[in-house]
């Protein structure tokens, strides 16, 4: 596998907490970040709820793993795509999402948003342009 770089796309279509998929797929992303592949994350359908801001699990006793998404930038995972249609359908806008950011080393470490809101056509191109699609 030396030198080979593949386009990885993680497709997140499930809401957090109701099932464990969101948490455990985030663990895959973090481990995968060490493999020097080209990583993109896509949140669509109920997956957009994974990066909703203001998550508070105190009263439920569940583990709140949402702060981990903030660390993705530090792992060089900074291409995060969110379906506009999925947000619209759920009455959400980008302002409802956690402000996921990274520091751009090519631009004097300026802090930039990792999130890009995308259309269905752009999602189609993302999928077609991927070597590996991991779905959770």
């Amino acid at each position: 596998m030396a030198g080979e770089i593949k386009q990885f796309l993680y497709v997140n279509r499930k809401a957090p907490y109701g099932t464990v998929y969101a948490l455990e797929s985030l663990e895959v992303v973090l481990i995968g970040a060490a493999f020097d592949q080209d990583v993109r994350l896509l949140f669509m359908d109920d997956g957009v709820f994974q990066i909703k801001k203001d998550q508070n699990t105190e009263a439920s006793g569940l583990k709140n793993f949402s702060p981990t998404y903030n660390a993705l930038g530090d792992y060089d995972v900074n291409k995060i795509y969110v379906s506009k249609e999925s947000l619209d359908e759920r009455g959400l806008t980008q302002d409802d999402l956690m402000p996921l950011v990274y520091e751009d080393e090519d631009d004097d470490w300026a802090e930039k948003s990792s999130i890009k809101i995308v259309s269905a056509d752009e999602i189609r191109d993302l999928m077609e342009g991927s070597d590996v699609v991991l779905s959770f």
Binding site: V11, R13, M127, E128, S130, D131, V132, V133, S135, F136
Partner: peptide, 8 residues
């Protein structure tokens, strides 16, 4: 094909 994706 040129790739595979599961809609799980």
């Amino acid at each position: 094909g040129n790739g595979v994706q599961s809609w799980v």
